[in-house]
Amino acid sequence: MDKQTAKIVARRKLEDRIFNALGIFCTLVALSTLALLLGDLLVTGLSRIDWQFLTSFPSRKAERSGILSSWVGSLVVMCVTGCTAVPLGIAAGVYMEEYGRKGRINTIIEVNIANLAGVPSIIYGLMALGIFVYYLGLGQSVLAGGLTLAVLILPIVIVSTREALRTVPVQIREAAYALGASKWQVISHHLLRYSLGGISTGVIIAISRAIGETAPLITIGALTFIAFLPTSPLAEPFPEHLTDWLHSPFAVLPIQMFNWTSRPTEDFHRNAAAAGIILIAVTLSLNAVAIFVRHRVRRHIKW
């Protein structure tokens, strides 16, 4: 190798090393922001989390406030969201993947879902305000809130169902048909069982997204200050109050956090940080569960 070439090679190698370092640097910046965010929340808010915080209603005094109504609110809203979005999303995903693969309607639905996934969440809130709250007259209730978030996460559930179904090899379908199974039997006995892991990953991610969602619920007018819990469905006399909780007003955890963040005093910001820790703990652990499920599925199913 003459001197000139050696020089060029050395320079190229240096460039490669510089870019490699740059890549590591950018990755670290992104990850350390996450670490910084977690650290800041923990330092500010961890000492605020105690039994009193979890079991108190919000109050005008920061040190007496708690997140009881908001975590219960988040829980019941998620029940409504999960019970509607999951069956609807899975059914839609199965239809698109197994029935209408090439039809024109399917193309329309497909383009439509791709578009829905890109619509900002606050637009869903406006739609829900117009339709659920006023047109259907549900008011600012748990039902309206749950349906709003269900509509929001529907595209995620549909897309992950389709992706999970697509990983089931065609031979499984062919073998089942060869044994005389009907289409519905192929779907319910085989495809859905094999793709259960993939679908649950998608569902968990979708729910974790819905828990942290704030804007559409503010838009439909969820309350920020609420000092009572929804009526228990089991309240006496028994069957009369079975569905009362659906029509109850509600607050959710992220809205409570937003409310505390926008107050001027320091002690409310501690409350906000504490609520943030709980919120982030829930969403990150749901994501961890999703990653775990995905890993397990990958390892255990070998076609």
Partner: peptide
């Protein structure tokens, strides 16, 4: 390892990012 870790950035609720922007 890094790919799922960076994806966690999008798992943080946006209201928490808002708090982080304002307070930190």
């Amino acid at each position: 390892v890094i790919k799922p870790a960076t994806e966690l950035l999008s798992a943080v609720p946006t209201v928490v990012y808002g708090y982080f922007a304002l307070q930190f």
